[in-house]
């Protein structure tokens, strides 16, 4: 019954629309939230949306994963391995930088006791 959802154009449309909806949800959280840790969570949601967009756009439905298993002996009819390699390193780096940012937030709280961004007024005049 849902056979029209399996065409490659429809899959690309679903991936693009939903990934960008996720990106704009993260952007909305970044602009309107007041707690410092919620801003970091919004940045992490924006990163996840970009990983999904990158791998979903190069996905071909009838091809297999880029590994030789199950009796396959030649490298043909495989998905693209270059986006997989780039997203692999991007996930690890994104997590490391997020941990650094959260450690800055913890140190700032220990120093002044504030987590609301409206009360961080040291840089004004």
């Amino acid at each position: 019954m849902f056979e029209f959802l399996n065409q490659p154009e429809v899959i690309k449309i679903i991936v693009t629309v939903c990934s960008m909806a996720l990106f704009f949800i993260g952007l909305f959280g970044l602009l309107t939230q007041k707690h410092l840790i919620k801003i970091f969570i919004s940045i992490a949601i924006m990163e996840v949306s970009l990983f999904l967009l990158f791998i979903g756009l190069t996905f071909k439905k009838d091809f297999i994963a880029p590994i030789l298993t199950n009796g396959q002996t030649t490298f043909s009819n495989m998905n693209d391995p270059v986006p997989h390699a780039m997203i692999l390193t991007a996930i690890v780096i994104g997590m490391a930088v997020l941990a650094l940012g959260v450690s800055f937030a913890i140190e700032y709280y220990k120093l002044t006791g504030r987590t609301n961004i409206d009360e961080m007024t040291e840089m004004r005049h």
């Binding site: 190069t58 880029p66 590994i67 043909s76």
Partner: peptide, 23 residues
Amino acid sequence: TAGDKLLKLNASEGVANAVTTVV
């Protein structure tokens, strides 16, 4: 694309996982 050419080059390295050779 570049990935197709790298898949063809991968057969000369003798490694079964194509993502490992690219990384």
